[in-house]
Design a protein around this nucleic acid. Sequence first.
RNA 1: GUGAGCGUAGCUCAGCUGGUAGAGCGCCAGAUUGUGGAUCUGGAAGUCGCGGGUUCGAACCCCGUCGCUCACCCCA
Length: 437
Amino acid sequence: MSKKNELIQSVKGTRDLLPADTPLWQRVEDEARKVFEAYNYREIRTPVLEQTALFARSVGSDTDIVTKEMYTFDDRDSGSLTLRPEATASVVRAYIEHSLYNEPGIQKLYYFGPMFRRERPQKGRYRQFYQIGAEVLGGDHPAIDAEVLEMLALLLERLGLKEFKLLVNSVGCSKCRPEYLKVLRKSLDEVKSRLCEDCQRRSNTNPLRVLDCKIEADQPIIEGLPKIIDHLCPECRQHFDAVTMELKQRGVEFEVVPRLVRGLDYYTRTTFEITSGLLGAQNAVLGGGRYDGLSEMLGGPPAPGIGFAIGQDRLVLTVEAASSLKPAQPLAAYIAWMGEATREAATMLARELRRERIGTEISYHPIKLRKAMGAASKLQVRYAIIIGEQEVESGNYQVKDMGTGEQQSVSAGEIAGFLKEKLREPAPAASPVAGQQ
RNA sequence: GUGAGCGUAGCUCAGCUGGUAGAGCGCCAGAUUGUGGAUCUGGAAGUCGCGGGUUCGAACCCCGUCGCUCACCCCA
């Protein structure tokens, strides 16, 4: 341990999720899985590493993600590779590569996993971050868009979240968007001088971004700018109207936000975002939209699609802030044994309980009963099982309810069954079990 | 890439105009050799982020550097 051994820390923007954190993450993942599968989505797992060209072509070679945020390196024999900054491109690539378009019906796919973007970290934004996402490929019916949003609303509801807003817009298609951009540029030229510095720059580089400006003083001016939903082609207009109508039918609350523009090039028509006031500046919990041309951009057949990505880090922050989920009861039982003469009996009981999926802890070396009870208490187990020489002799062990302090004698062979029966009942109010509905 | 704030014990933090480090919580042990959560007593644990400078003397002042956080940008 010389002083020269410098401490090695986790890489900037990455973090460890410790045992104190993971139950919430698991809970969010479990709920997402259940909801998605109820809507007939199936899981897909794609590599974290992809050819750089995949993202350059789909996300857009002029976007911030591609120009300055990707972790890219040259592999010895595979050319330029990139740690995925998002997963939609990968899912569509896999869809094409394995000809999933030949499967009957449309494909509904979901995924979980880490994404990588080299940005300056801040609250809710990390260099390795996690997304829970889904894609629907092979259909462009407005009912699909509406169903996706209905599903998302259900997921958030199941996670106990109420403070969120669904924002919806349409960004048109390759036919109507260029027309709109012309109109927007023209209007911007007239008002540009009155906008903030950033917006003046955006007017040239990315006029759509001006609509997303958060500067108070700019708002009245932005209000006056032409809206893309007023410049949609008849097909896009019809699609948008159908989506909003269906959302109303399904009882999904939403708000049409003409200024909602998404940052990735492949989006067409429906775009959406869900924001939470419980986050900081990075208030988007999830975002997504339709991408009807993406499959073709990647060399596949025409295959319209729509999808979303939930920022899991942000969702967890939101759930935490709303404290809508209670921590789970950690463990069911602790076995307290006294002296070497009781070791075997205790070990065998632990083995049996664990085989019966009853969470059990036991000391590896003999300790005083007092210490054992202290350990049981710290672990917050529901039951302590006491095995001393008397118990081994009689074959009846002491089972103590740590909540009430009541203790009873149960024969060794019946303990597993006894605990299983008891554990079926919810724990007393002092230690609620997560997610009981 | 830009800006601001903050780095003192495992955690949360105190430490006045520079005099060489403290509290609470947690942890360990004992009071209590077969019964936990309370209480009391004791204990372990700090290169005061790192490097340099000023000074008789630096956790404190100055410079640099690294890290974290938040914000801009952008996005999940």
